[in-house]
Computed example of a mutant assay.
Amino acid sequence: MKNKQAEIAQMLTSRQLQQQLYLSQAMIVLVTLLISFFLFDSFGDWVPLFKFAPKQLFWYGVLPGLSVVLIDLLLMRYLPEKYYDDGGINKKIFQNQTIFSIFMIAFVVSVVEEMLFRGVIHTEFGYVIASTLFAVVHVRYLTKPVLLVSVFLLSFYLGLMFEWTNNLLVTIVAHFIIDFCLGLSIQSHAERRRS
């Protein structure tokens, strides 16, 4: 499956791949809203999951997000590139983007994925199921042990932050920081290679 995804990604332009990304996120939003319609008592059940608590956001969102980025950057620096190669999908998505585009991709993905995995699945089926499903959905990592372990640890880490805080904004912030910073890293690395 991972090789098939990589082959398809290589046939698409960066713009087409970005469009597919946004299309998949739109489909996840629809699935999330549909599932929450059946599992929640009302759509009002979403409201208590979003709490603006600056100290909580900093300690459980910003700092953990930056910690994950730092660990990933260190691993990328010292491990062979093949361990982090997802078939070139992330590279193709981020390498030619503007900072604003990277911001938007990271924002949309973090909000949408956290609403589904933490907001619906975690609250209704628990920490382990949500965290495992989050990792399994990243199917392109299944044949790459370092990426697979990273996404499993990240998933359980984000789930733990949600367990402790019951605040979806915390996991959204952490997820956003990770995706945004790593997207910037890919883009910056591609610019250095072109120079």
Rank of each mutant, 00 (worst) to 15 (best):
M1N: 12
Q5D: 10
A6E: 01
Q10P: 04
Q10N: 14
M11R: 15
L12I: 00
T13N: 02
S14R: 00
S14G: 14
S14H: 03
Q16N: 06
Q18G: 10
Q19P: 04
Q20G: 14
Y22G: 00
L23V: 05
Q25D: 07
A26F: 05
M27D: 06
L30C: 12
L30Y: 04
L30I: 06
V31E: 08
V31T: 13
L33Y: 08
S36M: 07
L39F: 11
L39S: 10
D41E: 11
D41I: 06
D41P: 03
W46D: 02
P48Y: 00
P48D: 02
P48V: 02
L49S: 02
L49K: 05
F50L: 08
K51Q: 10
Q56L: 07
Y60L: 06
V62R: 01
L66F: 15
V69H: 09
L70D: 04
L70V: 12
L70N: 08
I71S: 09
L74K: 12
L74G: 15
M76D: 10
Y78K: 09
L79M: 14
L79D: 09
P80A: 12
E81T: 13
E81K: 15
Y83C: 14
Y84N: 15
Y84G: 13
D85Q: 11
D86P: 09
K91M: 12
K92S: 01
F94R: 01
Q97D: 10
S101C: 14
F103P: 02
F103W: 13
F103N: 04
M104S: 15
V108G: 00
V108M: 02
S110H: 07
V111S: 12
V111E: 07
E114D: 11
M115I: 09
M115A: 12
F117D: 02
R118Y: 08
G119Q: 04
H122V: 05
H122E: 10
T123L: 06
T123F: 03
E124N: 13
Y127M: 03
Y127N: 07
V128Q: 06
V128H: 06
I129K: 08
I129Q: 08
A130C: 13
F134S: 03
V137L: 14
Y141T: 00
Y141L: 01
L142D: 03
L142P: 01
L142G: 05
K144Q: 14
V146H: 09
V146R: 07
L148W: 07
L148A: 08
L148H: 03
V149Q: 10
S150W: 12
S150V: 07
S150I: 04
L154C: 09
F156W: 09
L160E: 07
L160R: 09
M161T: 02
E163T: 10
W164C: 06
T165R: 02
T165I: 03
N166C: 06
A174M: 13
F176C: 04
G183Y: 00
Q187W: 03
E191G: 09
R194D: 04
